[in-house]
């Protein structure tokens, strides 16, 4: 663990706390589900079944799952255009997700949001932003509401390394530190801001930005579920205890495309095959599987988890494909509550 905190709270001391076997198994199940759902959606896009390209979470599963395993019902999560994983990590509805990505009537946002805006308030997803960094203000505001309501809720904001270049991150760190808001800022540094390698557009380290605000900033291996979980635990606990925000930088890698359609328009490669292959050797899923095997979970149990995830994804895809389109007139009833647009 790589800790940049200059003003570290003792609660952020990297503990050696370990998830129980059942906790690990549950997290593994979520990660596998995300992987199989994303692969299936990639296939559905290739097959021409989706209205638009999708931004898939493959390779980053440990980030959403390790953080969200630390949350409770009622906590808020601001998500991104690469947000299917966050939703599923919050126990999202697989059918509703597929229907939304297919743009259909029974999608969680009635087909109005689509893949980049997968939000479900019943699961605490307070919006998914295709404005890079657009969720930072929303999560900070949700943290303010949580503080006002005093029920121990926390707000988590997922954003990418690209969003760390928006001014909102500094503004959020400043306000959340001043007001000790129950906020956890989670940067998923996946190596690219769209197609731009992070190093070409990001100076210094992202986690270390927190230090200037007196906020703990912690960078961990985002492909290591246990490390993510260990870092998220104290950050969430600190927020819940009213001690203020934490910035987590989860160093991971997007092994699939920025957007599934990219091979159709890229004029040149933006990374090497070797780089992608190298990161595939650090795939977060086998690392957890190996750990479970070492803990005595049988291969057939683990295979069953995988088969069940594939089945759920296939079933949800078939559901979405036959689900009706939304009635186009629905748009006129959604801009305002109880008011003509």
């Amino acid at each position: 663990m790589d800790t940049y905190a200059v003003n570290a709270n003792p609660s952020l001391d990297p503990t050696l706390e370990q998830p129980t076997r059942d906790e690990l198994l549950a997290m593994y199940g979520r990660m596998v589900l995300i992987r199989r759902v994303e692969e299936r959606l990639g296939d559905d896009f290739t097959a021409g079944k989706l209205p638009q390209s999708v931004h898939l979470y493959v390779g980053q599963e440990a980030c959403a799952v390790g953080v969200c395993a630390r949350l409770e019902d009622g906590d808020w999560v601001a998500s991104t255009h690469r947000g299917h994983g966050h939703y599923l990590a919050r126990d999202g509805d697989v059918r509703g997700l597929f229907a939304e990505v297919f743009g259909r009537r029974d999608g969680i946002c009635r087909g109005m949001g689509g893949s980049p805006h997968v939000a479900d308030f019943s699961k605490g997803i307070i919006g998914a932003n295709a404005v890079v960094g657009g969720g930072i203000g929303i999560a900070t505001g949700a943290a303010l509401a949580a503080q006002m309501q005093d029920r121990g809720r926390v707000a988590v904001c997922f954003f990418g390394d690209g969003a760390a270049a928006q001014g909102w991150l500094g503004e959020a760190l400043n306000i959340a530190a001043l007001w000790r808001l129950p906020l956890v800022l989670v940067c998923e540094n996946n190596g690219f801001a769209e197609f731009m390698p992070t190093a070409t557009v990001t100076a210094g380290s992202i986690a270390s930005r927190a230090a200037g605000y007196g906020v703990p900033g912690v960078a961990v291996d985002g492909n290591d579920l246990i490390e993510v979980w260990q870092a998220a635990g104290p950050a969430v606990a600190r927020a819940r205890a009213g001690q203020g925000p934490t910035l987590l930088e989860l160093r991971t890698y997007r092994t699939r495309a920025h957007t599934e359609s990219e091979s159709g328009f890229l004029s040149r490669p933006y990374r090497t095959v070797e780089e992608v292959e190298d990161w595939r050797t650090r795939d977060p899923l086998p690392r957890v599987r190996d750990r479970l095997s070492a803990a005595g979970v049988r291969d057939d149990e683990l295979d069953t988890i995988d088969a069940e995830a594939r089945r759920l994804a296939a079933e949800a895809s078939a559901f979405a494909e036959t689900n009706p389109w939304p009635d186009p007139s629905v748009v006129y009833g959604l801009m305002f509550h109880d008011q003509e647009p």
């Binding site: 601001a78 900070t140 505001g141 943290a143 303010l144 509401a145 309501q149 909102w168 503004e171 306000i175």
Partner: peptide, 12 residues
């Protein structure tokens, strides 16, 4: 960020 915070606080 104030405008975005307003949205988050209202939504919450």
């Amino acid at each position: 960020i104030l405008t975005g915070m307003a949205v988050g606080a209202a939504a919450a």
